[in-house]
Design a protein around this nucleic acid. Structure first.
Lengths: 233, 233
DNA sequence: CAGAGCCAAAAAGTCAGACTTATATGTCAC
DNA sequence: GTGACATATAAGTCTGACTTTTTGGCTCTG
C-alpha cells in the first residue's frame, strides 16, 4: 500500500508527516528548514523537497523571513491518501475513522446505484464472487479472508459506478474496513445480516435494479455507522 | 483562490500541471528532469521540487535511470484542489464537471441532513440569509450576485454538517457552481423552483428536520444533474 | 508621543557543480 | 537460450555561495 523509503525526502516525510497530522506541532508553529535538515541529518535540498510536499498537502506554508508555519487543521487536504494514512496511524484515528465512515454512508449508496446502471458483465461476476467469498468466510473466525472479499466487494462497486471520484475512494474504504477488523473491537464473526445484504446488493446490480442496490447499500453503511456508535457512543 | 507565483517552482507547476492533466503528456510518457529544467529555464533544484509536488499528487512517478514517467489517469489524486483546478481549466472540463456534480449529488444531501442536527444558531441564521440573498437576486439578470449567495449557501451546509471531509468540499462545490454560471450555458435567470428549494432547505435545517433537509437537498442536486443531461445528453 | 520612513538581520529561495547510487540494458561466455 | 557481468544513464544527494523578500525595530521628524 504505502511506498516506504522512496528517497531520503520520503524518509523524512514518514516521520514529519505523522508528527504534524498528530498535532505534535500545533497550528501556527514555526519550523525552520535548516534546523529540520540538521535534525533529520539530511541536506537542505532534501529538506526543501520534503517541505514542498507538505506544502502541496496544505499542511504547512512556507514564507520568506518567517519560516515554515503549520496550517490550521481545517485547511489540510484531508482527501490526500497519504494524509489519511498518517492520521489513521496517529492519535485521532477514531475521529478520522468516523469521518470516513460518514463519507462512505454518503457515497457508497449512490455509487451502488450507478454501478447497477454501468457495471460490465465482468464486474457483475466479480461482485457476486466477492459476495460468495464473504459468505464462505463469515463463520469460524476467518476474519482475514472475510476482510479480503469485503474490501474487494466495495472496491468493485466504487469502480463500477463509472465515476472517477468514487473510484478513487476504493483505497480509503479498504483502509477503513481493514482498520475496523484489525484495530477496533471485532473479535466475533461478522453480522450475518450484513453478509446477506452484500449478497443482495450483488443480485440487485446484476438485475440492473439501481434503486434497490442503492437502498440495500444504504442499509450496509447505516449498519457501519451504528457499529461505531455502539463502540463509542 | 489560487496562489500564483509562490516561488519559481510554483511558476513551473502552473504550466506543467495543466499540461499533464490535459493529457498533453500521455500516461507512460517519460520526462527528464534536466531537460525540463532547461526548458523552463530554472535550476535543477527548482525543477526537482516541482517534480516532488507532482509526485505527491500521483501525477508522475520518478525512478532512477528511467526518468519521470506520467502515471495513468486512474491513479491521480483527483481530490487535490490543485488538480481539480487544473482539470477544470483544461480540455476535460465537461467530464470533470460531471464527475463533481455526481459527487455533489451523493454528498450534499447527507451533509444537509447532518447540518439539520448539528448546525449552530449562527449557521442557521447565515443559511436563511444566503437563501434570502438568492431570492433577492433571482430575477433580472443578477447572476453574479445570485452566485455569491448560492456558493455561500452550499458552503455553510457542508461546514455545518460537522464532518471535516464534507467541509473540505466547500471549495470544490463553489468552483462547480461558478463554472456553471460563467462557462456553461446559463444566460437566463435561475430556475425559480431551485430557488424555492434552497429556502425550504434553510427552513428545514432551522426546524431540525433532518429527513426533510436531506430530501430537499437531493432534489436540488438531482436538478443540477438533469441540467447537465440537458446540456450534454 | 505618534507616525512615517528607513535600515539591517533573518530566513527562504535560487543556482552551479561535483559526486554517489541504483538500475535498465546490452554483451559475452557457456 | 540463459546467466553473470560490465556500462551507461538519469535520478539522487551534498555543499557552498549568492539573492530576494520581509519583518521588526530604530530613528528622525512633526
Amino acid at each position: 500500500m504505502s511506498t516506504p523509503g522512496r528517497g531520503l525526502h520520503g524518509r523524512v516525510l514518514d516521520t514529519l508527516g505523522p508528527a504534524i497530522t498528530a498535532g505534535e506541532y500545533p497550528p501556527g508553529s514555526v519550523l525552520r528548514t535548516d534546523e529540520l535538515a540538521q535534525h533529520f541529518e539530511v541536506s537542505r535540498s532534501v529538506m526543501r523537497e520534503a517541505v514542498r510536499v507538505l506544502e502541496s498537502m496544505h499542511l504547512v506554508e512556507s514564507r520568506r523571513r518567517v519560516g515554515v508555519t503549520v496550517r490550521p487543521k481545517a485547511e489540510w487536504n484531508v482527501y490526500d491518501p497519504q494524509v489519511i494514512r498518517w492520521r489513521l496511524a496517529g492519535a485521532d484515528r477514531p475521529h478520522q475513522l468516523r469521518s470516513l465512515t460518514v463519507l462512505r454512508s454518503a457515497v457508497e449508496p449512490v455509487a451502488a446505484g450507478l454501478a447497477a446502471r454501468n457495471a460490465t458483465a465482468d464486474q457483475c461476476a466479480e461482485l457476486t464472487e466477492c459476495a460468495l467469498g464473504m459468505v464462505a468466510n463469515s463463520r469460524g473466525h476467518r476474519l482475514d479472508k472475510y476482510l479480503v472479499h469485503d474490501m474487494a466487494f466495495h472496491r468493485v462497486i466504487l469502480t463500477a459506478s463509472g465515476n472517477e471520484m468514487f473510484a478513487r475512494l476504493g483505497d480509503v474504504v479498504a483502509e477503513v474496513l481493514a482498520g475496523r477488523t484489525h484495530h477496533e473491537v471485532m473479535f466475533e464473526d461478522p453480522d450475518p445480516a450484513a453478509v446477506t445484504l452484500h449478497v443482495r446488493v450483488a443480485e440487485a446490480v446484476r438485475a440492473r435494479d439501481a434503486a434497490r442496490a442503492e437502498e440495500l447499500t444504504r442499509e450496509i453503511t447505516t449498519g457501519a455507522l451504528q457499529e461505531l456508535d455502539i463502540l463509542a457512543p
